[in-house]
Simulated assay, not measured.
Amino acid sequence: MRDLPDVISSGRSRPVSRRDALRFAAAASALAGLGTAAAGLGAPTASAAAPTLIDFAARQIPAEYIRAAGHSGVVNYVSLSRPGSSFGAKPITLPYARSLTAAGLVIVSNYQYGKPGGTAPSDFTRGFAGGVADARTAWQLHTAAGGGRSAPIFFTVDEDIDRNTWNTVALQWFRGINSVLGAQRTGVYGGIDVCQWAAADNVIGISSIPGYRWAWQTRAWSGNRIHPAAVLYQRVVDTASNPGPLVGGLRVDVNDVMARDCGQWNLHP
């Protein structure tokens, strides 16, 4: 989940296949659980888009602008700003969450404090003890904003890592997170390989929709592949060279909802 524009190397998202259309139809069939912003959509055809959630960091975008843009909700931070930065949407606040809910929008929680080249290192480099600390911070901010007690929090791997780095570094961080939240309340954000490794190592939980895991996949570092178990797919990544769409005057990332239970608060009270 990118909180500042970066230039990334990524492939094109794949064309929507008949199988994807059926998956999107399953998501659309339960739009009551995805907020009323997209409630007028019918079952998508092979060329139609899934319901979408946006993510952003610079400031809070009023609910009415999100609805007007046709999105069903947000993925919002349950983490603080790094030293030297001040992001208006980090962390999500109780009043803002209530305004989104009142507008029929859904909320999914994400944690990211550090980043590559930032004033704090990438979170996954902090080891088991760092995972424990980050999980405690994320849970405190999530619940303070009214987040569901059984809802997952997606923890971010915001760079391209190899299997050895996953096994020796990132996995230990996720084990620390699991020791606080349990695997069922833990999700991952990353490229397709990170999502696959997290699922295989059982450090992320399971959606109520069969076959899906708490994996939020970004198109970055994924080529043209989409993991079949991902509940969210970050199709639009806002960068300086490839700006995301404007919502309420702010450029945002756009995420396709791949399963109607993608970890939104209202389904996990």
Results as ranks from 00 to 15, higher is better:
residue 20 D to E: 13
residue 183 A to Q: 14
residue 195 C to A: 15
residue 3 D to A: 06
residue 262 C to E: 02
residue 116 P to D: 15
residue 168 T to W: 03
residue 223 G to T: 05
residue 105 L to V: 11
residue 74 V to C: 01
residue 111 Y to P: 02
residue 13 S to E: 12
residue 76 N to D: 11
residue 263 G to I: 09
residue 210 P to R: 04
residue 40 G to R: 13
residue 159 E to W: 03
residue 108 V to L: 04
residue 93 T to S: 02
residue 95 P to G: 12
residue 189 Y to T: 03
residue 30 A to F: 10
residue 158 D to T: 07
residue 127 G to W: 00
residue 25 A to W: 01
residue 159 E to Y: 03
residue 46 A to V: 14
residue 162 D to F: 09
residue 253 D to N: 09
residue 159 E to G: 05
residue 251 R to K: 03
residue 119 T to R: 02
residue 17 S to V: 13
residue 266 N to Y: 08
residue 168 T to C: 07
residue 6 D to W: 13
residue 257 V to M: 00
residue 114 G to Q: 04
residue 202 N to S: 13
residue 206 I to C: 11
residue 135 A to T: 07
residue 185 R to N: 12
residue 123 D to C: 09
residue 193 D to L: 14
residue 215 A to G: 05
residue 28 A to F: 02
residue 167 N to L: 09
residue 15 P to I: 13
residue 115 K to S: 14
residue 45 T to C: 10
residue 229 A to S: 04
residue 196 Q to P: 14
residue 155 F to M: 00
residue 29 S to R: 12
residue 190 G to E: 04
residue 125 T to A: 01
residue 56 F to Y: 14
residue 185 R to H: 14
residue 32 A to H: 07
residue 185 R to A: 12
residue 44 P to L: 03
residue 97 A to N: 12
residue 36 T to F: 15
residue 121 P to G: 08
residue 233 Y to N: 02
residue 27 A to K: 06
residue 3 D to G: 06
residue 42 G to K: 06
residue 146 G to P: 09
residue 183 A to K: 13
residue 116 P to K: 13
residue 220 A to C: 07
residue 59 R to N: 08
residue 86 S to A: 14
residue 132 V to F: 06
residue 229 A to D: 03
residue 103 A to W: 03
residue 175 R to K: 10
residue 95 P to K: 12
residue 83 P to G: 11
residue 72 S to E: 10
residue 107 I to Q: 00
residue 146 G to A: 15
residue 84 G to P: 04
residue 208 S to C: 04
residue 10 S to E: 15
residue 168 T to S: 08
residue 47 S to Y: 06
residue 183 A to I: 10
residue 174 F to M: 02
residue 57 A to M: 08
residue 225 R to I: 08
residue 195 C to N: 12
residue 184 Q to E: 15
residue 88 G to F: 05
residue 114 G to S: 05
residue 156 T to W: 10
residue 29 S to F: 11
residue 129 A to K: 10
residue 25 A to G: 06
residue 93 T to K: 00
residue 116 P to M: 11
residue 256 D to H: 09
residue 98 R to A: 12
residue 41 L to H: 11
residue 146 G to K: 12
residue 179 S to P: 00
residue 26 A to C: 14
residue 58 A to V: 14
residue 61 I to L: 02
residue 103 A to C: 07
residue 234 Q to Y: 02
residue 84 G to N: 07
residue 67 R to E: 01
residue 179 S to K: 01
